[in-house]
């Protein structure tokens, strides 16, 4: 009986949700000037572009290998500095280690930091330090700091409380408590999160150059502006290879760790 009564209500609810979604998409389409005719008219142009991209300009490889290595450098150093900053911050955000009046403000700062897009951080650091690798490194440091700290404090809250209680019982102080009770349990996942953020950083670092933060990103814009599409495709190809390779290596290392 009751299911029969609920059915029309449920159906209207679904109908209203679909209507709302349709309205949202329709409004967005108007707002963004989305039109199929533009797309269909533009597609041949994009087709030409894709045809010009094949084959990639192999000789361009010698020009982009150095920026590509810079990109990997930025990603690695950014992830490392980020991880170093993230560890103490994660400790202060874990509810089972510190009281609420410390964890809530720390978490608030972390949440705030994670809402800022990486490219925007890079653009601000470019204004401070000038064009080059340094702003990219600092942007990626903050970016990976946010990610690693969040993931780490979540696993800290899930650690086994047994050793901690045992240490409290024998009168250990806070430093000993963290060194011998928390760190051994958190080391492996922490290393895994570091590798994960390195992986993300490589992808992010490849585009940071668009705002002047060093690495391979600036070449995307240059080659497209100079209409050297074969060089663009070489860039895309090299980026793909590097990303896939680094994903593969970090996945293997992570499997060893966990």
């Amino acid at each position: 009986m009751s299911t029969d009564n609920n059915r029309p209500i449920k159906r209207t609810k679904t109908g209203l949700t679909i209507l709302l979604l349709a309205l949202l998409c329709w409004g967005s389409a108007i707002r963004t000037d989305a039109s199929l005719t533009t797309l269909i008219n533009g597609l041949p142009q994009m087709g030409d572009l894709l045809i010009e991209m094949v084959p990639p300009d192999i000789q361009y490889f010698s020009d982009i290998i150095k920026p590509m290595l810079d990109t990997i450098r930025m990603a690695l150093i950014g992830a490392t500095l980020g991880a170093l900053l993230a560890f103490p911050c994660a400790l202060f955000s874990a509810n089972n280690l510190f009281p609420k009046f410390i964890t809530i403000p720390t978490r608030f700062v972390l949440n705030l930091l994670r809402t800022i897009p990486d490219l925007l951080l890079a653009a601000i650091f470019v204004a401070i330090f000038g064009i080059g690798l340094i702003p990219g490194i600092f942007a990626l440091t903050l970016f990976s700091f946010g990610i690693i700290a969040k993931l780490t404090y979540e696993s800290m809250e899930a650690i086994d409380n047994g050793p901690l209680e045992a240490m409290t019982a024998v009168g250990a102080n806070k430093t000993q408590w963290i060194t011998y009770g928390v760190i051994p349990q958190i080391a492996a996942p922490f290393a895994a999160y570091f590798l994960y953020s390195f992986e993300i950083n490589v992808r992010a670092a490849a585009i940071l150059g668009l705002v002047g933060a060093g690495g391979v990103g600036i070449m995307f814009d240059h080659t497209l502006k100079l209409l050297q599409y074969a060089q663009t495709s070489m860039l895309i190809l090299l980026t793909l290879i590097v990303v896939v390779l680094i994903d593969f290596i970090t996945t293997k290392v992570r499997e060893q760790l966990l």
Partner: peptide, 17 residues
Amino acid sequence: ELVLALLFIKAVGPGSF
């Protein structure tokens, strides 16, 4: 996505679309 965006800008012009 930014590289894709650069490509689509070539196709449909700069802008939200």
